[in-house]
């Protein structure tokens, strides 16, 4: 039995290692990002030499000046890849972390933009992720733009979304056309179902491949050494997905 979170982590790992994308040397993972964190650890534990900076990990957190240091590094172009989610994400890859309705979230208020308004423009690559794949999340146009998917010519910007990994599928993003293309659907999903669950328009090949299952080796890594790294920062996630708790393991 492969958990959906494991499928998403493996799909994100495949995007990270995409040979057509700019190389990654230093990846940062922000707050509330357990699935991207698992994907990064999967890449690293799989033997790929990347530097991982996990903002909310206490032990092994490389920063001695907190998040300020992360933003300074990113400002210089020294962070190659970052991850962003969204309360809403639209077909132009705009993300909304502020809320729905009128400013500043008159219907539903989300926590806030965090570093997105900076990171999305200053990182050569961003992988978008959101497990819930529904028309309320993937909307034709976000109510509020926390960070824009594309920028007009003349605005300094290092990169855009590479893709969007959801609980149902993987999309790739083309910044020139500001448009997503369906790349694969997870086992058990169909292209029709993804279409019905998505509020924005996107392109779709005639034959949509299935997202590959994580390999046995990847599953072993996720459930062992990857989980070991994540227990401290994401105890609830590790308990839910892998039924492992740091407290049990200390007692054992």
């Amino acid at each position: 039995m492969i958990a959906l979170e494991e499928r998403m982590a493996a799909a994100i790992a495949a995007l990270i290692l995409d040979p057509a994308a700019p190389p990654v040397r230093h990846i940062a993972v922000g707050a509330a990002s357990p699935i991207p964190a698992a994907a990064c650890w999967l890449v690293k534990k799989g033997g790929h030499p990347v530097r991982l900076s996990l903002l909310h990990k206490h032990t092994g957190n490389p920063f001695t000046e907190g998040t300020r240091e992360l933003f300074d590094l990113t400002g210089q172009g020294r962070i190659d890849l970052f991850f962003l989610g969204g309360g809403q994400i639209d077909g132009q890859a705009n993300i909304n972390l502020i809320g729905t309705g009128d400013w500043p979230g008159s219907k539903v208020r989300f926590p806030g933009s965090f570093g997105s308004a900076f990171m999305y423009l200053m990182t050569p690559r961003t992988i978008l992720f959101r497990e819930e794949h529904s028309p309320r999340v993937f909307v034709p146009r976000v109510d509020i733009v926390s960070a824009p998917g594309v920028s007009p010519p003349g605005v300094f910007r290092r990169g855009t979304a590479q893709g969007l990994v959801t609980g149902r599928c993987v999309f790739r993003f083309d910044p020139a056309r500001a448009r997503f293309t369906l790349a694969s659907v997870h086992p058990g999903e169909t292209a029709e179902n993804v279409r019905a669950s998505t509020g924005f328009d996107y392109d779709e090949p005639a034959d949509v491949p299935a997202t590959p299952d994580p390999t046995d080796q990847q599953l072993a890594l996720l459930r062992g050494p990857v989980c070991d790294e994540m227990l401290e920062t994401y105890p609830d996630f590790c308990a839910r997905v892998w039924q492992r708790r740091a407290s049990d393991e200390r007692a054992a």
């Binding site: 998040t67 933003f71 900076f118 990171m119 733009v145």
Partner: peptide, 27 residues
């Protein structure tokens, strides 16, 4: 947005009236 908070405080720390920040345009 996070780096803006840091930057505004860094301006105060330096005693200068403002500081520039990349990004944010389009938000």
């Amino acid at each position: 947005t996070c780096p803006a908070m840091h930057t505004m405080l860094q301006a105060a720390e330096k005693g200068v009236p403002f500081m520039p920040l990349r990004g944010v345009i389009g938000s």
